[in-house]
């Protein structure tokens, strides 16, 4: 599994490992959706997301906040992350999925900056993000 949940007394941390920065962003989004129970097996629509961050870590937080918004407020359920490009501190991605109305398994209030890290680990990239639940 490319992501794991890490213990944090008040909250929940998501640790993601992937072979590239694009794959890392995609797996982080899918990991978040798994935690929320916001996956679907029906790719009916594609949503385009374009974001700019202050740096790579900030970009990751903004990306996950955007996914959280689309899932929690708009009711989007994610099949997969389609095309994704990360250039500098900009991201362009396509989220494939469907609008639904199923209840989420968990209320994630926010994706935080606490203990946030993106690190190169050999050929892989690893990120840790703390979620406020």
């Amino acid at each position: 599994m490319p992501y794991a949940l890490v213990d944090h007394t008040a909250d929940m941390a998501l640790r993601v490992r992937a072979p590239s920065i694009e794959a890392l962003f995609a797996e982080a989004a899918l990991g978040l959706c798994e935690v929320l129970d916001a996956r679907t097996s029906y790719p009916e629509e594609t949503l385009r997301v374009e974001l700019e961050g202050m740096d790579m870590e900030d970009l990751l937080v903004r990306w996950l906040q955007e996914v959280l918004y689309l899932v929690g407020v708009k009711g989007f359920r994610v099949y997969t992350v389609g095309r994704i490009a990360v250039a500098g501190t900009c991201l362009a991605a396509e989220l494939e999925g469907a609008f639904g109305c199923g209840t989420l398994a968990l209320e994630v209030k926010a994706v935080t900056y606490h203990g946030l890290s993106i690190e190169r680990d050999g050929g892989d990239v690893t990120a840790t993000v703390v979620l406020d639940v």
Binding site: H8, A10, D11, T112, Y113, H114, G115, V130, D132
Partner: peptide, 9 residues
């Protein structure tokens, strides 16, 4: 008190 994010809870 317990571990929070940033400030302690």
């Amino acid at each position: 008190i317990h571990w929070g994010y940033g400030f302690p809870i």
